[in-house]
Design a protein around this nucleic acid. Structure first.
Lengths: 349, 349
DNA sequence: CATCGATATGTTTACGTACACACAGTCGTT
DNA sequence: AACGACTGTGTGTACGTAAACATATCGATG
């Protein structure tokens, strides 16, 4: 095991200089720094976590900036769970997580929102950068050297430590593949494009259409303002029913899938078109259970929150280089695998 | 946070005496010991793990007892990868993992196998308890207080630190659900039950049949010794083809799914029956890609290995309470989501 | 040329624990 | 009375790191 003392010896300097190189504090002559860096690389030096956390009696505070957990049908509860799990695991290493919620659907943020963030004096931030414009301003003018990790979506032009997302285009392709598998060959498919959309949802539609095109199946795109105008679902479905007699499947671009399942059920469409959508929120779980939804594609928000905190920990506490980009696998959920923590009744224990 | 120094102060002694009480070394006057013990109880003192392991300079050795990585079509490479990843992450914390492979298909284990395990003087074991009888004896007579974690499967009557498995019955149900979704309604399904089987594979078949029965679809079970008798696949498939003209799907109970896909391909069965099986080993990935397999259910072996080592670490090194049971979600793999780490080409970064 | 400021580097201390060591007091033996 | 053996207790050092503190070198300035 190599220590900073070994490195100092190899590089012919004192441990103080090694420390300065490692933490980028103070001035070090270029030639010296090069020698130290080479020694670090040669020995594959990794700081001793035990010594470090012992020395650093301090607490680490990670702010978690995201919409209120109840929003989007309770979707935001899920990443929060992951954050809390990571927080519990790292509690012994004096890591604490501080939730900082905002209203995703309000007009703007409370005037003091960013001030409140600063007040918590965070050592790092985990952010769902939903409100594009507001966040761009904030992060590009972030005063201190506070590292931040994005999850759920990305924001161009900024320099986050790490971005945790899922490949939206590919998830659209996956939805198309799943629908193709369960639909009769000769049938057609419609996309319920939930408006207002964003880069993410658009990419999903894109991937979906690309797959369908190459598979030679007809796909029709219809926009619906489900959130603001509940009737729009019925209008879209009515249009589909009359215009496409061979309608065999529906693809919903976000977590509002359950609203479409509801509408399909009430309209008694027969045979029921296959239905694929996003996100394992409670309402969708209910319709999966009742057989009104065939597949849900999950972005694994719990894992996103968990990995987000762990990335911050790795960088801020352990001083390890972060992964610039973490890609969350596309997770397929059906009725039979929807309870993510099935007990294993193999034995009495 | 209370330290031995606090306790010394409260009890009116020096830290040396506190140390002696804590470790039961040297002589301490009864009255003094009582005072110290009371102080320890009052303050709910817990030794600082980080200071302790730093001082002790301890190394931690975790033995990993599992079949040779090449066995079962390379399946066992996957948990090994997870183990190695955890090992790399924890290397700076002086954790090392020691692979201890056995021949899953040999008759018994080498006479000195358990002796070799003991020789490595492990601080913990991660075990795939495949060979039931042999392991029961070993673990029930394990001399020292060596904690062990089971993964892949469980063994009744023992007291592992933690068991990491997937619900086999439920995975059979899931396979049945997936096949039901993609098969035409009027068709029948056959189970290729790979022999020799074990509790796990039997439970999969059970779950599969239970689902199919409640869904009112006919299912036929056929046994095949794919490993020892390659021709048995063809025999089974021939029987199925002739006996069940409405055959619409096949379910394979383990990782040898690719062998069935191969046979189906060579026999030019038409229309190709839907095919669902287990485990994302390379050969299966190939047939998924080529469209010879529809769904693979993954036990996420990489994660099992990873979590196994982390459980040992948390308990042995950090002294935190373990999870008695970790249930691995049923993971559905298709062509479109099989590359588990898709890049996110959202922006240039 | 004495002084200052800046830059570059070395030294020391503390985190909480484990353990070797030092030391004081008591008792029994010669 | 002097010595050793023993019991009970206190002190010092080390683990590897972070950070404050101390020192050395050197050019610029009045």
């Amino acid at each position: 095991m190599t220590t900073i003392r070994h490195i100092a010896e190899i590089a012919g300097v004192s441990i103080g200089t090694v420390d300065r190189v490692l933490h980028g504090r103070g001035k070090v002559a270029q030639a010296t720094e090069a020698r130290v860096r080479r020694a670090i690389a040669e020995t594959a030096y990794k700081p001793n976590v035990f010594a470090r956390t012992l020395k650093l009696g301090r607490r680490f505070r990670f702010g978690v900036v995201m919409p209120y957990p109840e929003q989007d049908g309770g979707y935001w509860r899920l990443p929060l769970h992951g954050v809390e799990r990571a927080g519990r695991e790292l509690a012994s290493q004096k890591v604490e997580t501080i939730p900082l919620f905002f209203d995703k659907y309000g007009d703007g943020l409370p005037g003091d929102f960013f001030g409140r963030i600063a007040d918590t004096k965070p050592d790092g931030l985990l952010v769902a950068p939903i409100l594009t414009r507001l966040f761009i301003d904030f992060f590009s003018s972030l005063p201190d050297r506070i590292p931040y990790v994005f999850f759920d979506s990305d924001l161009p032009g900024l320099h986050p430590l790490c971005v945790i997302t899922q490949n939206a285009h590919r998830s659209g392709r996956l939805a198309a593949e799943l629908l193709s598998k369960i639909m009769r060959e000769e049938t057609e498919v419609a996309v319920v494009k939930v408006m207002p959309d964003d880069y993410h949802l658009a990419a999903r539609v894109e991937g979906f259409l690309a797959y369908m095109a190459s598979a030679g199946r007809r796909a029709h795109v219809h926009e619906a303002e489900i959130g603001r105008d509940p009737d729009s679902i019925h209008r879209v479905l009515s249009v589909c029913r009359t215009r496409y007699p061979r309608l065999g499947g529906l693809f919903v671009t976000n977590a509002l899938t359950y609203r479409v399942a509801q509408a399909v059920d009430r309209m008694q469409m027969h045979p029921r078109p296959a239905l694929v959508g996003y996100d394992l929120i409670q309402a969708n779980a209910g319709w999966l259970q009742r057989g009104g939804i065939d597949f849900i594609i999950s972005q694994q928000p719990e894992m996103q929150g968990y990995l987000g905190i762990r990335q911050l920990y790795r960088h801020v506490v352990l001083n390890e280089p972060p992964d610039a980009r973490v890609s969350i696998p596309l997770d397929i959920i059906t009725r039979e695998n929807m309870s993510r923590n099935t007990e294993n009744p193999d034995k009495e224990g």
